[in-house]
Design a protein around this nucleic acid. Sequence first.
DNA 1: ATTATATTGTTCAACCATTCACAATTATTA
DNA 2: TAATAATTGTGAATGGTTGAACAATATAAT
Lengths: 212, 212
Amino acid sequence: MKQKKVISDAVIERLPLYYRDLLLLQDAGIDIISSEKLGERLGITPEQIRKDLTCFGAFGKKGVGYYVGELCQQIVEIIGLQQHWKVGIAGIGHLGWALANYKTFGRLGFRTTGLFDVDHRIIGQNVGGVIVTPISEMDNVIRKEGIQIGIITTPASVAQQVADQMVNAGIKGILSFAPLRLNVPDHIFVFREDLSIGLSRISYYLTNKPEE
Amino acid sequence: MKQKKVISDAVIERLPLYYRDLLLLQDAGIDIISSEKLGERLGITPEQIRKDLTCFGAFGKKGVGYYVGELCQQIVEIIGLQQHWKVGIAGIGHLGWALANYKTFGRLGFRTTGLFDVDHRIIGQNVGGVIVTPISEMDNVIRKEGIQIGIITTPASVAQQVADQMVNAGIKGILSFAPLRLNVPDHIFVFREDLSIGLSRISYYLTNKPEE
DNA sequence: ATTATATTGTTCAACCATTCACAATTATTA
DNA sequence: TAATAATTGTGAATGGTTGAACAATATAAT
């Protein structure tokens, strides 16, 4: 599955959508799905789905559709979910807590095996089966557990410091909810999740409604 | 500020980024900023920033830059934040709780004035200054408070039902964290926030690293 | 065996977004 | 006042993504 061409972010971001819906189809006992039907379910054009998938190979069968189980497996391998990445979360406020219990992460193969905070009211608590550890010991836990991905849900004021600590401990990718640009070495992949963009888009839309 | 041309989503999504950073600059007592410097802070090219802004007008001064306060005001009006939208959150689990206390929402002018859940252990609690109400009374509260935007942080299994209830009560926009496609009338704007896309992107990146 | 139907993979065209280059404008300095 | 430096706004060029059309292929029906 070595593709030469560069794949766009837009394609990569749609793959988990396909995957999650395929899992639902699988649960429902559906073996075969056409790009047409899948597109209807997801609100994506069938052409888009076919084009996205052919970036990585020809997984469908002409005149038939896609075998659900087979396509699931293909997407798992494309995204790299078979690795069962280990994840650590720094900042066990409500957001961190929510993510530690977020079922969809598990369904995608991510394992949360480290939770970190500075607040001693939280340290020692069992959150979703994992004990919260002092953030001062984060380095040790990351190394011992082999955690590769860090999630930052701390206040913005300490996010950079936490990121530095994660990078030093050998983390390879960071998902940050802090509303600021993190400074990290080039080889670290940072994805910023910005919870206020959604509301802003809604505000813009409601303010400048398409004329009716 | 009536622009004829259709503005792309990408532009709209960058505006709150500019705005938040401009607020920080303002706090720091900085009156004037160039697209060059702003771009450095945000990791966006100066050309991009200038082009985005000129979709709505000529807010800068050639040879000088942008007046921070003035530009803030302009962006507020473009996004429509001066309205101080009222927001209701359905599903006060940890995620809902986190959002109810999310400072950035307030800073953008959103007011959370309704919190709804079915769990009687949560109903009646004060979360960020608002009392959690039974979801059965959501319609009344939405109408009485004049809530225009709903946030759905319930389990996926009830998200559609909650959305229907919100639409019936007169909600105009919905921010949904449920990992499924909501069925709503055309005039309702739905923005889906998908928390698992970030992790998936990181997994893809780490799996298919740019050759080094 | 042939025809009809369904559906993918792929080419080409249309559209959209970003980057580049530069004219226009302002402030500053000599 | 003239020259210089800084910086915006914009038109053209580039690059990328989506959409439409269709050939290729598989199944089902006759």
